[in-house]
Design a protein around this nucleic acid. Structure first.
Lengths: 246, 246
DNA sequence: GTGAACTTTTACAAAATATTCACCGATTCG
DNA sequence: CGAATCGGTGAATATTTTGTAAAAGTTCAC
């Protein structure tokens, strides 16, 4: 009975099951709500504080994984909040600033902010920066449960077990990772290149046929198990994990 | 002797047809070569310049889509190159800097750099930043959601599925791409030549009848589905995806 | 209405891509 | 250390798509 340890590859992007908490300190309700809207769509857990004082208070209460901090705040300004937070935690802080003044940038960075976004900002950019900062800080509360379930199929990257129709099927690491990767985003086509990059690693130089062989080995294990899902070839493009009725 | 057929056929797997050009200005050959290796694996077209002067020269010659610029360069330093490039184009620039000094960052941002990477860097990070910067600049290496919807018709390039009247119709890559291309700009006429250039690739030399045949194949799949849209022939000119317009 | 120009359709050959198999070196495990 | 397992390669095979040529059908201009 083979046993696989998974020391090396933790570059998967599995769905997170424990939400990442973000505190927004922002007095403009419109902006705050907009941010909440998008962030919640991305499955972040959002808390909003309308001024600096409440900002610090909420920070102590919820202990967020990241803070979005408006520079212009009533009563206690952004820098003060920034320092207050820094005084008791290394939580990443992204500053939201109305003017794109260089001076602000310098000062803010000195006070300990991790990044900057100048208003008016694009949500796309905000999301990207948040991800970047979180990644950089290694603050990944995700990873707690890397497990996907489908009809008669459980892909569990924690126990490294593939359960098909109730039975555990011994499955080598690469196959597990490939399947997990594909199934993480059902119905989305992955090109062989991308799979090599994302599953084998960007530093892997090898033939794209390798992917085919692994797909074949997976199919042997999965064929005819359920009509709810399947490993589909998209001719001329790549592969996808298809589930009916998404 | 291993074969890396990922590099052989250029527009394999329906990715981009015109390579994105990257200019690397870096005096350390090891680093430059390493960058080239990985970037070419990702299908970027790479040019290397070993010093600032040649950097600017090459920039004028190849007009890259992005510049990776080492800060420490012999003769003409990175900032000077940055300014020189900024003086004649808005091409995104990513700085490679040995020290992570705040001063450098600020100065660099002032000079117009778009992003920063401090050495020693991880290739993974470099690749991520490149994609981010390109995306931000709208040079879209890949659109976010490549999906078009019309009455009883969904063209989804993410799952690579053509859904007609609720049913998924198996459709080969070329047909998908052609239809997607036409439907991206409804009512606009495309000449056969243009379509060959834009869908088949500028380097494709073939008969213009080819387009006709593909149109015909598409029509078989789409005929009589909806009166809201249709693949129209514009006699003597080309084809268009026509939608009825209020 | 007629012919030239253009488009549609068909059938087939060529090209591209995917699957599968057998095998071997590397790695892991006992 | 030796056996078993895994990951990857290359080649043979199977499959699907794509391009072309040629016949048949349309449209347009006069």
């Amino acid at each position: 009975m083979p046993r696989y340890n998974r020391e090396e590859n933790d570059r998967q992007e599995g769905e997170r099951f424990v939400a990442i908490k973000i505190l927004i300190v922002e007095d403009d309700n419109n902006i705050a709500d907009l941010l909440r809207l998008y962030l919640e769509k991305e499955r972040y857990e959002v808390t909003i504080a309308p001024d600096g004082g409440q900002g610090v208070e909420q920070f102590r209460r919820v202990r967020p994984d990241l803070v979005l901090l408006d520079l212009m705040l009533p009563v206690m300004d952004g820098w003060a909040v920034c320092r207050a937070i820094r005084a008791e935690a290394q939580t990443p802080i992204i500053m939201l600033t109305a003017k794109s003044e260089l001076d602000d940038k310098v000062t803010g960075l000195k006070q300990g902010a991790d990044d900057y976004i100048t208003k008016p900002f694009e949500m796309r950019e905000v999301l990207a920066r948040i991800e970047a900062v979180l990644r950089r800080g290694g603050a990944e509360p995700e990873k707690d449960r890397r497990r996907l379930e489908f009809d008669k199929l459980i892909i569990d990257m924690d126990s490294f077990e593939l359960t098909v129709d109730g039975k555990v099927i011994p499955t080598p690491p690469k196959e597990m990772e490939l399947l997990y990767h594909l199934a993480s985003t059902p119905n989305r086509v992955y090109q062989r290149n991308k799979l090599l990059d994302e599953v084998w690693g960007f530093d892997y130089f090898g033939d794209t046929r390798t992917v085919d062989v692994h797909i074949k080995r997976l199919r042997e294990k999965l064929e005819g198990v359920s009509d709810q899902w399947s490993l589909k070839t998209v001719w001329g493009v790549g592969y996808k994990f298809e589930v009916v009725n998404p």
